[in-house]
Nucleic acid binder design. Structure first.
Length: 943
RNA sequence: GCCGGGAUGGCGUAAUGGUAGCCGCGCACGACUCAAAAUCGUGUCCCGCAAGGGGUGAGAGUUCGAGUCUCUCUCCCGGCACCA
């Protein structure tokens, strides 16, 4: 497969020349050009490049090269995320030095990356495991420490009792055993250095709204942050000084509390006295042994133990309720304690059923959500009864419109109102009683007319939709005017009442309905109106939340699912945490002047119950030498996510020995124009780095609050059969592919197989690569067909191609951009030859996709400069179109044929052409027509 | 369970509400060849000899016209998941 297109020689030749001539070295400023930094997640130097790396690095390079050709100063940096577990594992397994192992891998990998032919600026590259880099990790740690963003806390870690070591989550198998030793992993509390990321939870959440990222990514982050608004309320423990502080999102259900639950790890469990001490201790011990998965699997049978003799006082109604410990309450969320309302919470309900705790209903469900009405058993619309109220938007008052057993009733029954001598309440109750006489009537009600109408509109019975729409329109008018139409006014009057009156009428019916449901053991988790709640009866859930919280002396509170970030690792191959302990054991940050605080080399990597750094004599001697006798170093290292939280800032100023990244350089490059990465980093890495940027922003060390203007997650390349690439299922070896078809073809095929930035699985199709290679060979072959003068017939396709390729690259639709170039080449081959200028345009369009072959062909045309420094072709809007167009001829919306006519024809002219068409004429002859005419596209002749 | 995103030929995919299936793969036939590969050409959604008809997960709606917009449902993928 080649003709004389020798990809091996060409690629090698140009990569060498590009490097020698520093074609891709990027200056910080270029007069007249905007700076654009395109970021890709820096790779871990595993030592072997796979197709995923190609997809991650080679495809965004198309975008970067395009930006450069369209007049931008585009930076495409690359580095190595070089700390981490694999190096340490290799050290233990093969007795090699982690640094040597890593450096060796970086060397291999850099060569592989260079062979891709990307326009990386290697002059800014670094590895995070060098002191030149990690000293700034330590420096930033110090700044965070000063700012109160660092603290020490006992946190449960995975503990391997055989190897006597802490395990990373990825070293624990799904069944809860250790990957290496096979031991059952336990939880053990260790003091850890923490970053107070939760302090930024609200800002991390709020800023998302303004970011123009894909909504799906933002939504994942929102879920991860997991904001909940509610209240903290204290329950006194009867006969003691102790209080149980709970977080709840439903303070409106406080009167329905029938028991309390503490997490097994809750500090009060140790302090309270209860009769069944042994039983409780056993439960707590068992909970500690359980793996995270065992404990948190949803739908799992509830377990727990009652603290015999301990009672808590419900501050709302002064009732005493029992106290349990149960592992369905998590120590790490909220306050680690929960008030249980079994009538209105699924988990509490299941627990109450099992432990025979009373269930007290305090909410009458009624959704105020106009889109999602409660689904209270309304299976058949014929059986549905709806009370409709009209709300006057001006006054906020309501009038009863109707109460009927069918939808048809609603449309005709704008009647309601109040008869002579009746109060509004009596009017409603009279209607209710009338309705109650209908046997088996299922009752619901909506406070807002919109609800009723929309519900009907969305109901299965589609034939009724039109009725509902008519109703909606009619009611909308009424709401605007606050009156009813004259036709209705003759027979009906509207009397306006406030919302509380309406509610008072309705609560009794709903109680009946709800009790019916309880027989079927349903839990009512939605909001509504209060019952069994003393003076709050009849209040809406929303109102009651704040009123009840205030009544019992609680406070409104917000909780997040996101936890603070533990950065401590009991590992060797990472950044040493810059902390030393004085002889009393107090922690002190290591002053900046002693940074970098070097990672010692005289350590034993083998697991032995403590951090490897603890075995370094040099580290301990160094500490005493600098800080004094009895001072001890911190022996933990930092989480590698620390390295990747700010690395992009270092690219901008990677050789700066005075600053981690100068504001000056940041002004020129930040924020990052586009950040391409894997979907697996949507939450953790992306949130951590946003947190870093925000915290550094508050410290005045960075210039923007949000680091990434745009973020796109790429898809996954899978095997041809759809299986994920792995050692077991096999994987495409990119080096082999490059050897066969060349780097240009591999890169272009990856760009061609589907849209970029849309997560999904894209199967590697060996035939597909060959297809792209064939295309490149055809482009190669066109060199022989070049003539001096432009060929008129391919001018329009050429300009169309310039337009589409440019627009598609900007939108990351590389697949359709390539498709358009193929269309153009097909047209050229049909034509036979092409003008030199036309060929040069094609080569420039293709250059970002296939940098080597286009560079070669460009030089063969006699050019001496690099094609990659050329300007992007500009299309002429006047040349986009050809003289004739093919129009669709439709009869009553069905396409009956096509007609090739000259561009810009009028309706009359096209109609005339249809009449003249032997085949099409028959259709119009039949009926007198109305015509829908879309110039140059379609003519639709309607009977 | 909750939150996102999908569903179009044998496959990857393409279609500002306007001829569904562009482009590529695969396949079939033909040319070149002793032959094969490569290459080139023609064809390739379904039914039908044709005329014609049907077709974008299912059903309905809006529209002159729906893959595209609205609603209901099914299935698939991803994330979260005892979060009070």
């Amino acid at each position: 497969m080649s003709r004389d297109y020798d990809h091996k020689a060409i690629e090698k030749k140009w990569q060498k020349i590009w490097a020698e001539e520093s074609v891709y070295k990027v200056e910080d400023t270029v007069p007249g050009k905007d700076n654009v930094c395109v970021l890709v997640e820096l790779p871990y130097p595993s030592g072997n490049l796979h197709v995923g790396h190609w997809y991650a690095f080679a495809v965004p390079d198309i975008f970067v090269r395009f930006k450069r050709m369209t007049g931008h100063n585009a930076l495409y940096p690359i580095g190595f995320d070089a700390f981490g577990l694999p190096a340490e594992n290799a050290a233990i397994k093969h007795a090699v030095n982690p640094r040597e192992w890593t450096e060796e891998n970086i060397k291999t990998m850099r060569a592989q990356l260079e062979a891709m032919g990307n326009s990386f600026d290697w002059s800014r590259s670094f590895a995070t495991c060098t002191p030149e880099y990690y000293r700034w990790n330590q420096w930033i740690f110090n700044r965070f420490f000063e700012r109160g963003l660092v603290y020490r806390k006992k946190v449960p870690v995975n503990w391997d009792p055989i190897d006597q070591t802490v395990l990373a989550n990825e070293q624990v198998l799904p069944d809860g055993t250790a990957e290496r030793s096979g031991a059952k992993v336990e939880k053990k509390d260790l003091d850890q250095w923490m970053f107070r990321i939760t302090k930024y939870a609200e800002r991390l959440l709020k800023n998302l709204d303004a970011l123009s990222w894909p909504e799906s990514i933002k939504e994942l982050q929102r879920t991860w942050i997991g904001k909940s608004e509610g209240a903290e309320i204290e329950f006194a423990v009867v006969g003691t000084e102790h209080k149980i502080n709970v977080f709840t999102t439903r303070p409106d259900t406080l009167f329905g509390v029938t028991y309390m639950v503490l997490a097994p790890e809750h500090p009060l469990v140790a302090r309270l006295s209860y009769e069944n001490k042994d039983e409780v201790s056993a439960y707590v011990a068992a909970a500690r042994l359980k793996s995270e998965i065992d404990r948190t699997a949803a739908g799992k049978e509830k377990t727990g133990v009652r603290l015999q003799g301990v009672m808590a006082l419900n501050p709302a109604n002064n009732q005493e309720v029992p106290v349990f410990i149960a592992d369905y309450v998590l120590a790490s969320y909220g306050t680690g304690a929960s008030m249980a309302v079994p009538a209105h919470d699924e988990r509490d309900f299941a627990f109450a059923k099992k432990f025979n705790v009373p269930i007290v209903q305090v909410i009458v469900p009624c959704s105020d959500d106009p889109i999602n009405p409660p689904k209270n058993g309304l299976e058949e619309i014929e059986r549905e009864t709806i009370i409709v109220f009209l709300k006057n938007k001006a006054t906020g008052l309501y009038a009863l419109l109707d109460w009927h057993g069918s939808l048809e009733g609603i449309t005709t029954g704008i009647m309601g109102g109040v008869e002579d001598g009746q109060t509004p309440e009596e009017a409603v109750l009279a209607e209710i009683q009338e309705e109650a006489a209908i046997p088996d009537a299922v009752v619901t009600r909506k406070l807002k007319w919109v609800t009723a109408a929309r519900y009907c509109a969305s109901h299965k019975n589609q034939n009724r939709k039109a009725i509902a729409h008519a109703f909606l329109a009619e009611i909308e008018d009424l709401s605007q005017q606050g009156t009813i139409p004259e036709s209705e006014a003759k027979t009906h009057t509207l009397t306006w009442v406030d919302e509380s009156k309406v509610r008072d009428c309705l609560v009794p019916i709903h109680q009946k309905m709800i009790w019916d449901q309880f027989k079927e053991e349903k839990v009512l988790t939605e909001g509504g109106f209060l019952m069994n709640s003393g003076k709050f009866n009849g209040a809406s859930s929303e109102d009651a939340k704040s009123r009840i919280t205030e009544f019992v002396g609680g406070r409104m509170a917000t909780t997040y699912k996101m936890r603070d970030w533990s950065i401590s690792r009991q590992r060797y191959w990472g950044t040493p945490i810059p902390i030393v302990y004085d002889p009393e054991g107090t922690a002190h940050p290591i002053p900046d002047e002693h940074l970098p605080w070097l990672l010692p080399t005289d350590v034993d990597y083998n697991p032995k119950g403590t951090s490897p750094l603890g075995s370094s004599k040099e580290l301990f001697e160094r500490t005493e030498r600098i800080f004094g006798k009895g001072w001890k170093p911190e022996v933990e290292t930092m989480d590698t996510f620390m390295d990747s939280s700010w690395y992009f800032l270092r690219y901008l100023d990677s050789r700066n020995e005075k600053e981690f990244s100068s504001r000056d350089k940041q002004e020129q490059w930040m924020p990052i124009h586009t950040y391409f990465g894997g979907a697996e980093h949507t939450t953790v890495h992306l949130l951590y780095s946003r947190f870093f940027q925000m915290a550094l922003y508050d410290l005045g060390l960075v210039t923007v609050e949000e680091p990434y203007t745009r973020r796109f997650n790429r898809g996954l390349i899978v095997n041809e059969d759809g299986s994920k690439m792995s050692k077991r299922t096999g994987a495409v070896n990119p080096d082999e592919q490059v050897a066969i078809v060349g780097a240009d073809a591999v890169k272009m095929y990856l760009a061609f197989m589907g849209p970029y930035g849309v997560t999904g699985n894209y199967p590697w199709n060996p035939g597909g690569v060959v297809g792209v290679r064939r295309f490149l060979e055809r482009v190669w072959g066109l060199a022989e067909k070049v003539v001096e003068d432009a060929r008129e017939m391919i001018e329009a396709p050429l300009h169309q191609t310039i337009k589409k390729v440019g627009e598609d690259i900007e939108a990351f639709k590389f697949n359709t951009a390539i498709s358009q170039m193929m269309i153009f080449v097909n047209a050229v081959e049909k034509e036979g030859d092409l003008g030199r200028a036309q060929y040069e345009v094609l080569l420039r369009l293709l250059a970002p996709f296939a940098p080597h072959i286009t560079e070669e062909l460009w030089h063969r045309l006699g050019h001496t400069g690099s094609i990659h420094l050329e300007a992007w072709p500009v299309y002429n809007p006047d040349r986009l179109t050809s003289e004739t167009v093919t129009m669709a001829v439709q009869i009553d919306g069905k396409t009956k044929g096509t007609l090739t006519v000259s561009r810009g024809l009028t309706e009359e002219a096209v109609l005339a052409a249809v009449r003249e068409d032997a085949k099409l004429a028959q259709y119009i002859a039949k009926f007198p027509s109305r015509v829908v005419f879309i110039p140059d596209k379609v003519i639709n002749i309607v009977p």
